[in-house]
C-alpha cells in the first residue's frame, strides 16, 4: 500500500501489528485480496468500511480466530502463525478482545467472567483475585453492584463494559474492539469513547477499533483505516481520509449522518465536504 500517510499519532516505525498481503476467502467469496496494514504502538486505529468489507474478518484474522488463506500477520514483530502453534503462547500474545455484544459467559457472574482467565493461567490467592476483578470493573467504570450479576441481568451498556473489563483481564497491550458503541444511546456511546481514551492514555494500550460510529472516529481515533474492495483503500488522520477521493468514502462522510458528525465536533475548518 503506497498511500499510507505519515502522521504524528503513534510512532510510524514501531508497528505492533503488521499485516502484509493478507488473503481471506470463504469459498469463492474473496473478502481480503492483498490487504496491507500497520498498527502503531499506542495509537487508536478506527477501522471502517461498508458491510461485508471484511472489518470483522480482519480483526478475527489478527487475533488468530480466522485461518487466513495466505499472507503474513506479525504481532510485536513475530509472525502470528508460529505463535498460534503453541497454546502456551496464547496468553503471552498480550491481546484483549471485546466482542460485539460482550460474548460474556452466560453461566458466570461478571466477577467470574473477569477472573476466569486469570485463574486459568496464574496461581493467585482469593483475596487478590477479588481485588483484581474489582479493579478491572472499576477501570471499566462498572459499579461493583453488578459484580455478582449474570450477563442476562445487565443492560446493553453494562454488558459492553463488562466485556471490556474481561478483555482487560490479562493486562493486554493491544485491545481489539468490535463495534464498542453499536446499539448504545449517544450518551452511553460517548462515555465508552471517553473511557477508551482514558484507558489508552493511562495504560499505554494500542487500540484496534472496528466501528460504524462517526462520532467515535471524531472523538478518539488517531488514525482511520478504510477497507473496501478486499484491500485497504486509505489510512490516515480523519481529515486526510475524509478528503480522499473515493466514492464510498465520499458517500460515508458526506451523507446526512456524516455531516452531523462534523457539526457535533464543532469543526470549523473547511474540509471541502
Amino acid at each position: 500500500m503506497t498511500d499510507t500517510q505519515q502522521t504524528p499519532a503513534g510512532d510510524p516505525d514501531d508497528a505492533v501489528i503488521r499485516v502484509r498481503d493478507l488473503v481471506n476467502a470463504f469459498g469463492a467469496n474473496v473478502v481480503h485480496n492483498g490487504l496491507d496494514l500497520d498498527v502503531r504502538r499506542g495509537e487508536i486505529l478506527g477501522v471502517v468500511g461498508g458491510s461485508g468489507s471484511g472489518k470483522s474478518v480482519l480483526l478475527r484474522s489478527i487475533v488468530g480466530l480466522q485461518k487466513i488463506r495466505s499472507g503474513v500477520i506479525e504481532l510485536f514483530g513475530e509472525p502470528l502463525g508460529e505463535m498460534l502453534d503453541d497454546s502456551d503462547n496464547l496468553c503471552d500474545l498480550r491481546l484483549g478482545v471485546m466482542f460485539q455484544d460482550g460474548a460474556l459467559f452466560s453461566s458466570l457472574t461478571v466477577t467470574e467472567n473477569i477472573q476466569l482467565a486469570i485463574k486459568e493461567h496464574y496461581k493467585v490467592g482469593d483475596a487478590l483475585l477479588q481485588d483484581l476483578a474489582d479493579m478491572k470493573m472499576l477501570l471499566a467504570e462498572l459499579p461493583l453492584k453488578a459484580a455478582n450479576q449474570y450477563p442476562s441481568e445487565l443492560s446493553g451498556g453494562m454488558r459492553k463494559r463488562a466485556g471490556l473489563a474481561r478483555a482487560l483481564a490479562l493486562d493486554p497491550e493491544i485491545l481489539f474492539l468490535d463495534e464498542p458503541t453499536a446499539g448504545l444511546d449517544p450518551i452511553s456511546a460517548a462515555a465508552i469513547d471517553r473511557l477508551l481514551q482514558t484507558l489508552r492514555d493511562a495504560l499505554g494500550l494500542t487500540v484496534f477499533l472496528v466501528t460504524h460510529d462517526l462520532d467515535t472516529l471524531h472523538a478518539i481515533c488517531d488514525r482511520v483505516a478504510v477497507l473496501g474492495e478486499g484491500r485497504l483503500i486509505t489510512i490516515g488522520t480523519l481529515d486526510e481520509v475524509a478528503n480522499f477521493d473515493h466514492p464510498w468514502i465520499k458517500a460515508y462522510f458526506s451523507g446526512p449522518r456524516g455531516r452531523r458528525g462534523q457539526v457535533d465536533r464543532g469543526d470549523t475548518s473547511d474540509t471541502g465536504l
Partner: peptide, 19 residues
Amino acid sequence: RMILTALAAAICDGDRSRK
C-alpha cells in the same frame, strides 16, 4: 505515574457499594 493515578482515580471514584 499515569497508570497509578488512573487506577487510584478509578478505584476511589468508582461506585464501590455492593449488595
